[in-house]
């Protein structure tokens, strides 16, 4: 198991999970989001290759209404 911070919330995931698996777990559409992993943007093509470890910080953002 690994403890990570997802959008500021502490969550536990299985160890060696990829970003792709994380999105799948939370049923997030990877086409409609952008991801930052420990402060660096992860290109969509790397979602399957990027593995998460203890204390990682992940931000998942999307578009909302704004001026």
């Amino acid at each position: 198991m690994a403890k990570i911070q997802l959008n500021g919330k502490k969550i536990t995931i299985k160890s060696k999970a990829s970003i792709y698996q994380l999105l799948k777990k939370f049923k997030l559409n990877n086409k409609k989001v952008a991801i930052e992993h420990n402060g660096a943007i992860v290109p969509k093509s790397n979602y399957k290759k990027k593995y998460l470890k203890n204390n990682d910080k992940v931000e998942v953002v999307h578009f909302i209404g704004g001026g």
């Binding site: 952008a34 999307h62 909302i64």
Partner: peptide, 23 residues
């Protein structure tokens, strides 16, 4: 114009902007 914000992980069933305004 649109803003970029954290997605609400716990409440994913809420409607989102792209459901109503097709990019």
């Amino acid at each position: 114009t649109v803003a970029v914000r954290r997605i609400n992980i716990l409440d994913k069933n809420k409607p989102i902007l792209t459901d109503y305004i097709d990019p």
